[in-house]
Amino acid sequence: MDYKQVLKKAGAVLIALAFWQLAAMLIHQRILLVSPIQVLLRLTTIWQTEGFFMSIWFTFYHIVAGYLLGVGFGILLAVLADRWSWIETLLWPWVITVKTVPVASFVVICLIWLSAKNLSSFISFLIVFPIIYQNMLTGLRTRDPKLTEMAAVFRVRGLRRLTMITLPQIRSYLVTACSITAGMAWKAGVAAEIIGTPNGSIGKMLYTSKMYLDTDDLLAWTVIIVILSVGFEKLFVWLLKKLLRDS
């Protein structure tokens, strides 16, 4: 991104914040809408809240675990489905179901079987898995058959074949899918926590803030979720790119 683009985007953010500040001043009802300055001020003190760091760790740990499981299973099953088409057929109804059923329905259904504590992991997994699986499968299916023939003639096998022939061809599919799903896992995971309200989670903190009409806290926690989500996505995608390039 060039310097001018960064400036333009920063300008757009500033305008949006000014608009928000103006709206808060006009409404003048802290319960309905707090100003960005008030949210910023709350962010400087919210870390002193009891259980702040534990809540962040709890939510981070569960969502990231679900995300990584989704990525792992998505890759594994795509590789198997690419090799044996009957696996793709077998998985088809599950993938379609997971993709079409609303997250909220899944959360409520899963609450019957799972403890609220582990719900966000499972929901993150459900959101991530089908997208990783389908992107990986598309990547594997669009590999250049000419390179596959070359590898067969020269008897290139194993790790060399994976790192020099397969990975470069599927890298963009995998990185894109991981980038998209990282944000989705956080959205769905936190939504599951709000419905399940497991003790010591960010979801519970958000729910409590809403119950007490503590809008400062509600928005401050939301900002923290956004920071965690974006930070995790950037870090994971950076690590993934580095791993795939260096492999």
């Binding site: 000419k146 390179l147 070359m150 003639v153 020269f154 008897r155 020099m164 470069p168």
Partner: peptide
């Protein structure tokens, strides 16, 4: 054991010439 030059070059485009040749040699 066969060595082949195909009708097309069929190289691993993002790797260097040395890496492309090394690919088919014993590890």
């Amino acid at each position: 054991k066969i060595g082949m030059v195909f009708q097309e070059d069929r190289l691993c485009e993002e790797f260097s010439a040395v890496e492309n040749v090394r690919l088919v040699l014993p590890r």
